[in-house]
Design a protein around this nucleic acid. Sequence first.
DNA 1: CGTCTATTTGAATGTACTCAAAAGCGGTGG
DNA 2: CCACCGCTTTTGAGTACATTCAAATAGACG
Lengths: 190, 190
Amino acid sequence: MKSKILSHVLEIIDLTKNQQDEFLSILNEKTVTKKSFLVKPGDIVTEEFYVVEGCLVAYYLDELGNKHILQFAVEDWWISDFESFFNQVPAKLYIEAIEDCKLLGINKEVLEVLYQRIPQFERFFRIKTTKAFVSLRCRILSTLQKSAKERYLEFCKDYPDIEKRLANYQIANYLGLKPESLSRIRKELV
Amino acid sequence: MKSKILSHVLEIIDLTKNQQDEFLSILNEKTVTKKSFLVKPGDIVTEEFYVVEGCLVAYYLDELGNKHILQFAVEDWWISDFESFFNQVPAKLYIEAIEDCKLLGINKEVLEVLYQRIPQFERFFRIKTTKAFVSLRCRILSTLQKSAKERYLEFCKDYPDIEKRLANYQIANYLGLKPESLSRIRKELV
DNA sequence: CGTCTATTTGAATGTACTCAAAAGCGGTGG
DNA sequence: CCACCGCTTTTGAGTACATTCAAATAGACG
């Protein structure tokens, strides 16, 4: 279960065998079943999660009861309410398993100790966060520039593996559309 | 000119006097006049910039000639085409001074050396990037959830200092609106 | 087979858009 | 000081696209 995250890390930084073991030892294995929650609004989130297996969604539920999907995560992705995790403030998001999942969690305080002991991990997470940051900038550009139809096609192209595992109403939600609208867009595409 | 960036850094990490000097020595002072460009599409961007003074805008110009503003930057902010800077690919963005500016640039290769020599900077940029990442997530949630009017009010509340320095058509553009639409929204707010 | 959920379809509505024109504003030069 | 210019903002009328609400159809699962 932990071999995947290790190669995920070793793609970016070099670690001695001892450092590898130390890193693996701090990971918390976690399984969540479909439809159960990893995070709920109000929680002070103590972990960020690496997805070993399964599919999850992070969404905000507004005062009117409308869901707004911020992120999906599948194998080899990270997910959390990062605002809550980094700033130790109450979460605003739900994180829900949409399939049975196997996760590896890293505790915030333990991670801080890891940064002291193996500063390479500052580098690892700097680089991961930078990539995530850049892709959010692309996503924002995409919403500013592209039509709903174009954004749907882009999503299918960029994340074909994820798209297959989702209901259309979830994709619609992620794109900021109503399911009826996505349905009409899909109709035009045949 | 460099005292501001130093305290900006020292808010997040500790540095010895020597380390401070080493850091300051790698910064490139740069001035750009209003309406001139720091980055243009196609450039391989070699620097990221700390704003000492002035105001800049990063935008994408699409095939139809429409501008889409991704970011503003004023004093104490960082700006670049981060995708180009981090991945060393051709820039997609224009970065334009909308006031005369004083900047401090850090060269990508020199920064990599700095990471080797003073690993604390991995931490510094990890933390800065994390904050930027979290605020982009908030911005995406805001576009998913809020009406144009609400987003305008939020922008004015969150960045009152920036808002005062911008034309309405620039704010409109950042919010993904046409100037006419923002004008009508503002009309309703009296 | 029946139930529950997701998707599609239809009709009416709303929000922001386009295009065009007018009004406002700031700076320059006569 | 005023007239003019360029640029920004506002206003108006018609349009496009996604939304709402409601109902019908399709699919998945026990």
